[in-house]
Design a protein around this nucleic acid. Structure first.
Length: 458
RNA sequence: GGUCUGGUGGCAGAAUGGUGAUGCAGCGGACUGCAAAUCCGCGAAUGUGGGUUCGAUUCCCGCCCAGACCUCCA
């Protein structure tokens, strides 16, 4: 039914407008996202970007036959050097451990692996090639052991982030290195001393600047032109602006990213997350006492371009929403499957409007809960599950969701339920309630239904 | 200082030039021995001052407030 297939519209940061998404090659949609700099655990702000990318890629996979999703790992960076030194460990140990932790955290919240996850240190050669070409074409110059990109050679510099070069100079809050021809020039290659990781190059032993890695890796995996480049809005300038300048100057016939997607920042209790405020939350911190799906749902409750305020109350609410969804999935018949409803997909196609998509899921849950199987309750449940799965939710069974938290002795609980049933039959409600209270104290909630008494974790 | 977003019920959070989704919380009812879960129902919002318009929450301007970015923070 190609006529009824929803069309994806996405907001493009470069033009600051929401436009129809038209793939360069409908047979292979190509996406690049900026991944982590691996010096510390992922925090929930990092996670928002990764979840946004995940929903986008899942939706693209639903709409198109093939998607190539590349997400890099920055494993050469001065913050890494500083952290390894402070920890008294090798850079290799630090980055290996951080990458492993990053993968664990993302997997916990059902973020799918990218098709390629290149590491900067594995692509130094390509970066050097690009730098060489930029020097040869007059877009870059050497100065005091550094190679710098000359922003004045790229007339469109600033077009992506909507700034004029004059604004940038006026607002520069960092001291401008004296060897720069223009205050806006940025480093492509910089010298390393003996204590710092470095690679031999035509410009001496050194290491790459931050931006060049993404230009080199996106070109290597996706070509001169690809469909979508994404990341947090804080990357728009300077990182993405600089990436674009380098890539467009190095590959003048390409378009680099056709479409730019940026997610808004996350606040914690109304404040920007920062170590000095003491509100810096890692994914692990949150998952210690929250089911991973609740964290994921919390992030999807706001549209990705809105600032999202992270609170414990919001997390609790996300958990309650999932309780109801899983309650509805108890109506699911194992044999019944359904595609995600068109209206749900339509909402996602409207610039990833996950709040409206979730409203559709609530309607499906209503339907499933209010009707028995003969009246379509099981179909609604199947649709709900398909919808949830499309955005990386509802992967558990209701059994796992309601009972999966901590270790409990199910046999002991069943024995107490049997004892309570006997007491109720004898109309000894004092004893029956005492048993229920005893279990409640252990975090076990009893529910008396038409089919008998069931239990779940609070 | 410059650039750019945004201010919607108690809270979270959509949408829209013409009766403002959804969720949580609250209130009433059904069900229950009482609960829990579920169901039915109810109340409740567009920061502020102007302008354009038959009509503005939506478009425009001022003000107030919040946030982001301004050379390596998702």
């Amino acid at each position: 039914m190609p006529d009824t297939q929803p069309r994806l519209h996405l907001h493009d940061s470069r033009t600051r407008s929401t436009v129809p998404f038209v793939p360069l090659d409908p047979q292979n949609v190509r996406v690049y996202y900026c991944g982590p700099t691996v010096y510390d655990l992922a925090h929930i702000g990092n996670l928002r970007a990764m979840v946004t990318a995940d929903v986008l890629v899942r939706l693209l996979r639903h709409l198109y036959p093939r998607v190539t999703y590349v997400r890099n790992i920055t494993d050469v960076d001065d913050k890494i050097n500083a952290r390894a030194h402070a920890n008294g460990e090798s850079i290799a140990d630090l980055t290996a451990r951080t990458i492993r932790d990053f993968h664990e955290d993302l997997q916990a919240v059902s973020i799918l692996s990218p098709d390629a996850e290149p590491r900067a240190t594995h692509h130094i050669g390509e970066m050097q090639d690009m730098i060489r070409r930029l020097i040869e074409s007059g877009h870059a110059y050497e100065a005091q052991g550094h190679v710098l990109f000359a922003v004045s050679t790229y007339p469109s510099y600033g077009a992506l982030s909507g700034r004029s070069p004059d604004d940038l100079i006026a607002g520069a809050r960092v001291e401008v290195a004296p060897y720069k021809r223009d205050p806006g020039d940025f480093v492509l290659w910089k010298p390393s001393d003996d204590q710092t990781p470095g690679w031999d190059s035509p410009w001496g032993r050194g290491r790459p600047g931050w931006h060049i890695e993404c230009s080199a890796m996106s070109h290597h995996y996706l070509g001169e032109s690809f469909d979508i480049h994404g990341g947090g809005s804080d990357l728009l300038f300077p990182h993405h602006e600089n990436e674009r300048a380098q890539s467009m100057c190095c590959h003048p016939h390409g378009r680099f990213a056709n479409h730019w997607v940026h997610n808004a920042m996350l606040l914690v209790n109304g404040e920007k997350m920062s170590k000095s405020l003491g509100n810096f939350l890692t994914v692990r911190d949150v998952l210690r006492d929250t089911p991973p799906e609740a964290l994921r749902l919390l992030l999807l409750r706001a549209q990705y371009r809105s600032v999202l305020n992270f609170t414990q109350a919001g997390l609790d609410e996300a958990r309650q929403m999932l309780d109801r969804f899983y309650r509805a999935l108890e109506k699911l018949d194992p044999g019944i499957t359904a595609p995600p409803p068109q209206r749900f997909v339509q909402m996602l196609c409207d610039d990833l409007n996950t709040p409206r998509a979730l409203a559709e899921m609530h309607a499906l849950a209503d339907d499933a809960l209010a009707h028995d199987a003969a009246a379509g309750g099981n179909i609604a449940a199947a649709r709900l599950k398909a919808a949830g799965n499309l955005i990386g939710l509802l992967h558990d069974t209701p059994e796992q969701w309601f009972r999966g938290g901590v270790d409990v002795d199910a046999d002991a609980i069943e024995a107490l339920i049997a004892e309570r049933l006997a007491a109720r039959k004898a109309r000894d409600f004092a004893r029956a309630d005492a048993i229920r209270n005893e279990l409640a104290a252990q975090g076990i909630v009893l529910e008396d239904g038409p089919q008998g008494t069931t239990w779940r974790q609070a």
